[in-house]
Each structure stands twice: as structure tokens, then as C-alpha cells.
Design a protein around this nucleic acid. Sequence first.
DNA 1: GCAGGGATTGTTAGCGCTAACAAGCAATTT
DNA 2: AAATTGCTTGTTAGCGCTAACAATCCCTGC
Lengths: 347, 347
Amino acid sequence: MAERPRSGGPVKATAAGTRQPSLTDVAGVAGVSHMTVSRVINGTGPVRPETRARVLAAIEELGYRPNSAARALVTGRTGTLGVVALESNLYGPASTLYGIENAAREAGYAITISSVSRPGRSSIADAVENLRRQAVEGIIVIAPHVTAGRALEAAPADFPVVAVGGGEAAPVPVISVDQRDGARRATEHLLALGHRTVWHIAGPEDWLEARDRELGWRETLERHGVGVPRVIRGDWSSRSGYEAGRSLAKEKDLDAVFAGNDQMALGLLRAFAEAGISVPRDVRVAGFDDVPEAAYFTPPLTTVRQDFIEVGRRTFGLLAGRMDGGDRHARALVVPELIVRESTGPR
Amino acid sequence: MAERPRSGGPVKATAAGTRQPSLTDVAGVAGVSHMTVSRVINGTGPVRPETRARVLAAIEELGYRPNSAARALVTGRTGTLGVVALESNLYGPASTLYGIENAAREAGYAITISSVSRPGRSSIADAVENLRRQAVEGIIVIAPHVTAGRALEAAPADFPVVAVGGGEAAPVPVISVDQRDGARRATEHLLALGHRTVWHIAGPEDWLEARDRELGWRETLERHGVGVPRVIRGDWSSRSGYEAGRSLAKEKDLDAVFAGNDQMALGLLRAFAEAGISVPRDVRVAGFDDVPEAAYFTPPLTTVRQDFIEVGRRTFGLLAGRMDGGDRHARALVVPELIVRESTGPR
DNA sequence: GCAGGGATTGTTAGCGCTAACAAGCAATTT
DNA sequence: AAATTGCTTGTTAGCGCTAACAATCCCTGC
């Protein structure tokens, strides 16, 4: 018996002004040496069951919590990973962040984030430096941007950094969704419906994903030997999609549009509605991302789904491998999926 | 001169296998004591300019980076704050996170996140405990959920925790957007257009924001002495808004609907479009949140805008105050704004 | 009955840093 | 000239923890 502390519950040992209890305090209460307490906590070395019980009771009584700084100092491990995230509510990056956090937590790592308001070589380098000062054990850069890729070219060889969806040429492992394949699927789908050609609203030129989607679209058109319309460029926002739609509405032989993401597709649908163009009757439209709302656009949007949870998981996996001395040139591709809805449905 | 290191650039002192340089290493190179180096780095105590220059050169030469664990161990400060975030892409929580991160970074704090897949008393308590093991100096809980509020009732008095948008009764500072006021504005707006009454699609019953919006709506109707229709409940998703719309489409005297958020409003618009109900001609619709896409819905959505950046800033401010020994019962309210668009426009 | 060996516990050192105090040195003051 | 002052630098201790080694205990086998 007697494992319950005398006062009938955990003692508020942390009242203002009192310092947190240490291993030695616990050892004193349990009547053992501080090393034995350490062994109980970390499961290193053998401890007699009765001793363990006494120690556990003392820990509870004092409300002891290991001091992570002291542990990190002696082990050289902080159990923390850094994530550089672009400060935006874009569906993809935000979802990826959660995927990473989940995988990391399961593996016992905490995640420290450093956000970047606009991608740029120096801002990303700053964020990385910022995280290194926090003594993270590895860094994940979510910045699918050409400048991010360039920033990563300078990534130190002796510190594990991985990138999500960018930096093809960078000397760091990269995880990405196969944007070209996704764009190909969407474009093929539209061509298969019998359209002469497919227009494209591209994302910002300095986003790798935008480039790859455009490339996949262009390749597909060329492979089918159909004309490639001029590219209309947006900035991922619904507003830019709307403007693209206003401009496209004037085109004579318009009958299919592949938008670089769902937000732009939404703006496009809006502009078409205002111009009296019916989707899918007059024009068919596809997007990219499959944001949760896409199924409820007017009309519901055909789009390309990316599994960001999987991306997060693979990202963590690659970083873990890299921290373990793995290859700097590892690559992982996640394959997207075409989701067909009314916006490319029968007329 | 001679401030440039001999080899003409920072030395790769961090080659694999070599340990990171320490204060003592820098001191050795600069020919001073480690304390002088510490003084240069922290700006504590006076240092002669020439000495400072020598030290700085040595730091650069070695690529020295202070060991945060050692510093935290001796100062008792980690410079890290924890955020408990609900794992969702809901616009509000995600935006708030960035607002907090920004304010914290400006003040020299790093942010560690611990996400919670579904809100619940124990999961939130786990996340908090998880963060405390990381030795964060304070915690922000973004979980506008009744269970979050309940979890916070057990928040320790001796550790700074603040909540965003929830836990009215909890003994922690709370920052929220004035949901009731926002709902009142939307409802007043719809009533002012001459409608007999306003229907409401509420969010999940266990979300405080949903409760407050419903309350604001109900109060307004009662104050105007108009009938209060039965509440239709959704789960914030477009899907649930769509289902609510299908059910509402059968109502006889339907002419105005206030949706609990923009996603549900989107689903509602979709259902109405399918049912041949025109917005705003047949029915007027308002939402809540002003997600970036709301201006491009069909039709563009009247909604209530919340300034999440401001929420993040205020949240950090309240936490900083609390860490400084401030009141546990502080409250901050951010006032929302009605954005009028076509969905409640002229017929 | 005593050496040998595994299980269990303890002792010591040191991770890298900052706080506190001590010491050196030049320019002043008495 | 000696003492005082203020600036600058150095010395020491210790934060809380784990690694490495040392010591003890109890049981087994001969």
C-alpha cells in the first residue's frame, strides 16, 4: 500500500516563487539516488519494482516534470523539428503542415514553425537560421517556390533539411505531388470529352507547382497535336481567376478551361456566370487541389486531388532518413487523383 | 585590419562528426575568456571595441551558434510558446495561428504547435501537457469548443495559458471575436431589407462560436418581435450547408437565411441553385467569416468579417501580460464587420 | 563456505552557458 | 604619491540531467 502521497493528492509544488522540482528532489522524497529516478523515467537500466513504485509515487507527489533543456544539453538532442511555412491559407501548405505535425508527433518529435510572409531567398534563409538557433534537429521547408529552391541550394550539407514540393535542383531531399501528372490527367479528361483544345489559367510564374501544372498541360496538348492557346496567368486567388474569366469570356472558340487551382476556378465560374456562359453546357472547367468546398461550387468542380496527409507523412519519413545520414538526393512523388464532377459533366 | 579570418571565409567547422563550437572555442580563437564572448553575444557588460571585433571575427570564423539548451538551463527561459491548434483547415483557426506566430516572432519568441485532431477534454489536456514537457513559457489554446473551455477549467494557476475564442467561464484570459455582435449585424441587415424573419443554419452545438452566433441571431429576432424559425444545424462543412439548403428549399415562406459560416453558405447556395431558387431574387443569404473566396461565390456572399491578424496580436499580448503576472480573468473582444455583397443585394 | 556473476543502486564528471563576484588597469582625485 | 573611481576582463560555481564507471547485494555452484 502506501503509494498515495500523504496529503491525498498531487502537491502544488509549483506555487509562485518556488522552483520546479528536480531529479534530486524526487530522489530525496523516494529515498534513492537521482540516477535511479533517471532510470525509472527513461527506462534505462534495471530497477526493482518496489523502488520503481516509490519513485513513481514521489514523481506524482511533487508533480515532477523533466527539464528538457538539461536533457537536451547533455544528450545533444532536442526532439524538435522546424518547419518553414509560407504564411498563407492556401489549402495545400496548411494541410501539409498538419500531416507533418501528425507524423512527427507519433515519432516523438515536437514541431516549431517559422512562417515567412513572402517567399524569398533571404527570408527563407532567415527562417532557417532562426530555427537552427532554436536547436531543431532537422528542418522542413514548405515553400513551393522557385526562390525557395534557390535558397535551398545553399543548404548546409551537414544539417538535415528537406523540401516539400519545390527545389527540384536543390541538394536536399524533395517530396512533391506529381503536378505534371495531375495536369496531364485533367487535360486528357477535357480532351477526351471532344474539345478542340484546353485553355489554362496558370498560377504565378515563380511557383514551381504552377510551372509543373502548366508543363503537364502543354505537353498533353502537344502530344495530342492540338493547338496550345496563350497562357493566362493568375496568382492563385479567386480574384485573379475572376479576371481571367472576364478576359476568356470574350474568346470566340472557348470550350474547355483547366484552372491552376480551385480558387481560381471559382473566380472563373463566377465570371462565366456573370457573362451568361453556362458551365458545363457552354464551357467545361477543371481545377486543381480538391479543396473541401469544390464539391459545392456552382457547378461542382472537377479537380485534381492531392493527398496532403500522405505528403506530410512522406516528408517526415524523408527527413527522418536524412537525419539518420540518408541521401541528400532522395526524392518522393505522391500521385494525385482526378475527381470528376459536374463542371465537366454531360451537357 | 586583420578582422577577416585567415582562410578568407567562414570555416566549415561543422563537418560531420565534429562537435559544434562552444563559447570556449570562440574564446580560444579570439584570445579572450569565454565570459567576454558571452558579453559580446548578449550585449551585457562593457567590452572594448577592438575586443568585440576580435570576438565577432572568431564567431564568424568558427560559425558559432549559441547552444539554446545550455542557455535555457541556466536562465530558466526557453523563449518558446506553445499553441494548441485544432487540426483543421477552417479559415479562422489557421489565420489566427499566423497572427500569433507573427506577433510572437516580433517579440523574440518561437512557436511550437501541438495539434489536436478532435477537440476533447483529454486530448486538449494531453496537448497542453505535451507542450509543457517541451518547456514552453506559455500556452495559447485555439479551440473554440465547449470541451476546450471545460479542459481549461483545470488550467493550472501557476502557468500562463490563454484561450482564443472560447472558454468564457474558464479561469484563463480569453480573446474572442464578438460573435453575437456579428450575428446581430447580419440579422439586422437582413431584417432591414424587409424580410418577415431570418432562418439560421447554426454550427455544431459544441462550438462556442456556433452558440454565440445563434444567440445573436435569436436575440435580434426577438428584439424585433418577429417569429424565430426552428434552427437548422450543420457542422461548418459545405456538405452540411448543402443538406440544410435542400431541406430549406421545401419551406413555404422562406426569404432570408443567415448561415453560421461561409462554407455552409456555399453549400446552401449550391442547394438553392439546384432547386431553382435564385439568390438574392427569391431568397437572401448571409454568411460569417469572409473567407477570401466569399467574394466569388455565386452570387458573391454578404458575410461578417473577422480580423484574425488582430486576434492573433491581441492573443499574444494577453499571454505576454499573463506571463508577466497579469490577471487570469482578462478578456479581449475584437469587433467584426459586415461586408455586404450581392447575396443580399437588390432584387 | 567462498568465489563468481548478474541484478540493482550509487558516485562522479561534465554538457555549454550565465550570474556573481574578483581582479587588473588606466585615469582621476586627494 | 597614494587612494579612489570606473571601465574592462577574468574566475568560479552551478543550472538539471545522463554517461560511464564503481560499489553493493544476493544467489548460484563447487
